[in-house]
């Protein structure tokens, strides 16, 4: 606010007061702008090894409670089941695939755990009379309810839940993290946005160090 905009006929005291106020405001403005730029620059410049953090859930802490399916801001959820193939035992009677109260050992809907039929069972081979199946997660169908994950956890636990980053809208505060009973959600570096189970990490480390046997 400059004195120029003021009308004529004002006494000099008021003009002086306006000048003083204008000067103070100018000083505060400059100070504010500079400290804001400096502070934000410092905070953003003080980055550690990674620049960006994204939300991910730690599969070792996950209890597959089902909140991922219901609490994500997206419908269906950004969380999906992931198959860690190296751990899957290709069972005939898969506890992640079949409802434990299944009627028969077939793929009818009433025998399956998955409410959307997103877990596909594919026959691979028969070895010594034992049929072997591969289980695939059909991601577009998966709603992240974790029923298969809970089932699989009784055996090897090769199925686990992960935030799929092609879907996640990266809310500032993840709604699922708020609802997660086991505090499994945390911010992870965007360059390594997926977490493995400890079991899977050990298996991979072993495969890398000694080479795949057989």
């Amino acid at each position: 606010m400059s004195t120029m905009e003021r009308g004529v006929g004002q006494d000099s005291a008021r003009i002086a007061a306006t000048d003083r106020r204008g000067f103070l405001a100018e000083g505060l403005r400059t100070l504010g702008a500079l400290s804001l730029a400096g502070g934000v620059g410092f905070l953003a410049g003080r980055r550690g090894q990674e620049e960006i953090l994204v939300w991910q859930l730690d599969p070792d802490r996950c209890m597959a409670c089902g909140n991922c399916a219901t609490h994500c801001v997206l419908t269906p959820s950004a969380v999906k089941a992931v198959q860690f193939y190296p751990l899957c035992a290709m069972c005939d009677l898969c506890t992640g695939y079949f409802d434990l109260g299944h009627l028969r050992l077939d793929t009818a809907a009433e025998n399956q755990l998955c409410p959307t039929g997103a877990l596909r069972r594919e026959f691979i081979t028969e070895q010594a009379g034992v049929p072997r199946f591969e289980y695939h997660v059909d991601e577009p169908l998966c709603i992240g309810c974790g029923k298969c994950v809970k089932g699989c956890a009784m055996m090897n636990g090769s199925l686990y839940l992960q935030v799929r980053h092609d879907r996640c809208v990266r809310c500032n505060q993840c709604s699922i993290a708020l609802a997660c009973p086991t505090d499994a959600f945390r911010r992870v570096p965007a360059s390594q946005p997926y977490l493995l189970k400890r079991k899977a990490r050990m298996l991979l480390a072993h495969t890398v160090s000694e080479g795949p046997s057989g």
Binding site: F84, Y85, P86, M90, I124, R132, N156, Q162, G214
Partner: peptide, 19 residues
């Protein structure tokens, strides 16, 4: 512990690439 059987002539889908 259920161990993944080796099936000759079958390669499982590449888990890492999928992720």
């Amino acid at each position: 512990m259920l161990v993944r059987p080796e099936v000759p002539g079958y390669d499982p889908p590449d888990w890492a690439a999928k992720v």
